[in-house]
Design a protein around this nucleic acid. Sequence first.
DNA 1: GGAAAGTGCTTACGGAACGCCAACAGGATA
DNA 2: TATCCTGTTGGCGTTCCGTAAGCACTTTCC
Lengths: 205, 205
Amino acid sequence: MLTERQQDTLTFIQHYIRDHGRSPLVAEIADGLGISSQGTTHRYIQALVNAGLLERNVGRTRGLQLINQHDDQPEQPILSVILPVMGKIAAGRLIEAIPDESEIDLGDMFSGSNRFVLKVNGDSMIDKAILSGDWVVIQSQQTARHGEIVVALVDGYDATLKTLLTNDDGTVTLMPANENYEPVTLAAERVSIQGIVVGQLRTYP
Amino acid sequence: MLTERQQDTLTFIQHYIRDHGRSPLVAEIADGLGISSQGTTHRYIQALVNAGLLERNVGRTRGLQLINQHDDQPEQPILSVILPVMGKIAAGRLIEAIPDESEIDLGDMFSGSNRFVLKVNGDSMIDKAILSGDWVVIQSQQTARHGEIVVALVDGYDATLKTLLTNDDGTVTLMPANENYEPVTLAAERVSIQGIVVGQLRTYP
DNA sequence: GGAAAGTGCTTACGGAACGCCAACAGGATA
DNA sequence: TATCCTGTTGGCGTTCCGTAAGCACTTTCC
């Protein structure tokens, strides 16, 4: 039976390997556990090795290896893409750690009921930093508030991605974010909201 | 298990072959890794050959050859956040279905080994549609190619997100994407690449 | 109260990882 | 043939990292 700190150690190692693809240094484990002694940390590692939960390539840097404990498990479909967060990057400073946020879960960020993804075609939202080829995550809903970026159908046709502005006189304005396009003001009845933008994704080749 | 520099070496060779269509000289690898010793470089190459990742035509110039070996890893598909894709949205049309793509997997898009996430602070990449508050996914690596967006340390300090331009005279230029900032040209040795941007995420409140 | 277990710290040692340099060998080239 | 280019090998040093041992403090339980 593992002690509390032994369990912490194992958990940390598992997360580290999952996030970084290689095993941590003893010093990194110590840091992750919030203790400053590599010696103590090493004792925990040794306990895990003795318990048959870890394997060690003696003498090698980053030589730890997880033992697959029970791979007969039905592999539950975890919906989470977890990426480690290193910190904030800014001009003029080193990368700054973000307190209380060591990883981000794309599932948390973008998943949800009634959501779907659209691929953006065209540059009408370029001033809002949405480029052609980007993906936008849409929360499917029929209403939207002033200032939200919406997918809108005009007269049941003409689907566009625009910023929605609601005017006092009952009309709405669909405002592109590109000076080469003109805003369009229409009676609210003619505009059918399909959903609002809740996220945006881009990959680089 | 590869050490960090062995991994760097392999990555450099892969990129070099992809870019130039032939394998690099030992001296070129050394240069790419930022070390001046061909002997040290050769040791890394030897390690990769021993690991079965490279093949060598002994005695021949540019005799390195990559071994294709991605059949030994069953590639655990644990990580998947799947969102349905409705289609393309464009000005002037209904939402257009995208053939052969009914859903997208955020795991496929953004996961990978040696990746992490940074929160962007500041508007220096605004013309590349990366805003303050966005998240960028960084592929951790020590080398980058001309035109890639990189996380770079200047003189071991001053971490920035910039477009990397490699000049013919051995210097590199860190180019911000904001006309209010000035590009900086430096000797390549002073610039330490931390990784390249492979993705970008944004959520809307 | 005292033993045992759990947790933490410091110090020390040896090897791994990494880097440099010099020297040599063999193919390529003039 | 002589020279240059490139790959290869070995030695040396520095720094980083894993391992181990000893000491101290707290909690738990008999």
